[in-house]
Amino acid sequence: MTANAHLEQPARAAPGTPRNGSPQQFGRQAVTAVPMLWLLVFFALPFVFVMKISLAEADIAVPPYTALLTWVDNKILSIHIDLSKYLFLFEDSLYLAAYLGSLKIAAVSTIFCLFIAFPIALFIARQKPETRIFWLALVMLPFWTSMLLRVYAWIGILQSNGIINSVLLELGLIHEPLALLQTDFAVYLGIIYSYLPFMVLPLYATLEKLDETLIEASADLGARPTTSFLTVTLPLALPGVVAGCVMVFVPAVGEFVIPALMGGPDTLMIGRVLWDEFFSNRDWPMASAVAIVMLIVLVVPVMLLRSRGRHSLGHG
């Protein structure tokens, strides 16, 4: 954990370092170029486009925003940048409330996903290799149907004349149907259910690689199962925990469909605000500004998580 531990490199690392200009290095560059290109095409370029729109002004035109660059008299290039959208994000408390609402829902859902997914992943990882695929398939199976269908299935289960309420009424446990749908509870349930596999899979991937003898070693050294889990399994599963949390948290923040279908009227999430800006207000620049800030709000905690994960892993 101390800094000097990182300074001392293992002696074996030296022969592995590539020399400049060697074929291996070219190969490595080619290999890293593919994801870089991917990032450029599917992340950087769209980001720049959206950024550009966020700096324009809304207009009744096709497209419905002003150009940033215009030629005046075909001679002078005039640049028109409008930062008012970003300022407005701070003027109206709605945006802050929506961002915080989204972050809260995403964070709570992520934590629940983690607590539910960890035992599942651990269970699967401890099965015989031949039977693991079966359990993994059970986790993955719902993904082969449309997400919308699965959300509707939950609506069918939760609604006032749905399965849960019918059974409870039949058993005489309740006399009035419980309001399960159109509540924050339903939103959490929908998000946790939908994103659970995104948590299970990375956790499974790290736990599957976990050397069972390490657990035995800790037991041998006097650790009870709980202690063994906390001091060995959990720290070693940390990369999976971080990856799973990112994969659940990030899309959950931007989630639109689940709160729209399962949430109550007062469920306020940033995805809805963005939708309103784009479709109800037809203010593409404002919608873009909301999206850009959402991205920044997301990227910062992800970076923090990543660096934390890397730090506690040492050289990983």
Binding site: D92, L94, A97, S280, N281, D283
Partner: peptide, 19 residues
Amino acid sequence: SAKFDRLLTRAWTEMKTGK
């Protein structure tokens, strides 16, 4: 008008969510 659309959407959101 675009300006009124914004007021309307905002009022609607406030009515629904209280925010």
